[in-house]
Structures are given as C-alpha cells and as structure tokens.
C-alpha cells in the first residue's frame, strides 16, 4: 500500500516541493522528510481513505517544513508567513483590468513564455508560489488547499487572487519596459 503510494505520488510531491524552494536538493530533503513522517504513523491512518487524502498530508508537511527552513541563499530578508492571515505586508492594489492585459495575454501565448513564467514565479513570495502550485499545478480545489495550508477557504480565495495579480505584475515587468532590477 505504501509502496503504491510512493509510486503514484512521489513525482507530484517533488514537483510541489521544487516549486516552493526552486532547488533540487532542498526539494528532495523536503519530500523525503514528509514521506518519512507519514510512514512513521501510517498504521493508524484510516486505510479505507483514498490515497489522495494522504497526499494532502504530504503536501502540508512539505509546505510547513519549507516555511520553517531559512532560505540559505538570501540571509535576509525572508518571505515566510508567521501565523498571519495575509502574509504580505504590502496590500497589492487591485488593478482595474486594462490594456496591459493584452501584453500579458500575448506573451503567454508565445512559445518562449515558459522562461518568463518561470522567472515571474521565482519573483513571487513563497506563499504565493505555494498557492499557485497547489491551485494550478497540482489542480487542487479551494477546500483541499485550505487543508494543506491551514487557512479558511475565504482566505484561500483572496490569496489565490493576489498571487495571480503578483504573477501578472511579474510578467508585465518582463514585457513592457519598466526598469526593475529584482536582486
């Protein structure tokens, strides 16, 4: 049973971990730790539940651990949520849709967009990356995301929206000529 679980879900778990920390070695560590922890207590898991429920646990473990770990690449500062409803200190102003959307849409439709998308993702906070990874890459619903991240569904909804706004801003910076040097 556990072996089947590994076969079915280790790739997805790794993908999620990789999106969070953008580093193969760290992602491996996170996934390993998450699975080991689950293995330690698996015998009192409800084994009639679908394996997918266990997978949510893995995702949660990966996320929590990645948040605990300090980012070794940048000494300071760190973008970690600290039990705050909305981890961002800055309120991202909700922009009224405008013609810049044309530029973003245009870029997303081009073949070379993946590079820009990756770069824009890397520029997001870890929380934003996590929620987009869960929502769009793992394809989880808001209720599942709320269980993985430990927040109410209303928060999930607004957080996803903000993450998308932030991603769009990131993509915009790569299209039009704002001179922004993210260091």
């Amino acid at each position: 049973m556990l072996q089947r679980f590994v076969e079915e879900y280790s790739d997805s778990a790794f993908t999620f971990a990789y999106r969070l920390c953008e580093n193969v070695e760290e992602a491996k560590e996170l996934v390993q730790e998450a699975f080991f922890r689950l293995f330690k207590s698996w015998d009192h898991f409800d084994q009639s539940q679908p394996l997918e429920k266990w997978f949510l646990t893995i995702l949660k473990n990966v996320y929590v651990d990645s948040v605990k770990k300090f980012d070794r690449r940048n000494m300071v500062p760190l973008d970690m949520p600290v039990r705050h409803e909305d981890g961002e200190g800055v309120s991202i102003a909700e922009t009224i849709a405008d013609e810049r959307d044309e530029a973003v849409l245009d870029m997303l439709e081009r073949r070379e967009s993946e590079g820009h998308l990756k770069a824009a993702l890397a520029g997001l906070t870890k929380e934003h990356r996590a929620i987009l990874a869960l929502c769009d890459m793992q394809g989880l619903g808001y209720d599942e995301i709320s269980r993985v991240l430990g927040m109410p569904m209303g928060t999930v909804r607004s957080r996803v929206s903000r993450a998308r706004t932030a991603l769009r801003e990131g993509l915009l910076k790569r299209t039009a000529g704002m001179v922004a040097y993210g260091v």
Binding site: M75, V76, G89
Partner: peptide, 12 residues
C-alpha cells in the same frame, strides 16, 4: 502585528 520573519547573522 503585521510582520515577517527574517534572519540576522545573530539569529532569527
């Protein structure tokens, strides 16, 4: 308070 964790050379 609205806050973020950071890391200094001396610690968290």
């Amino acid at each position: 308070k609205d806050r973020k964790e950071v890391r200094l050379a001396s610690g968290p």
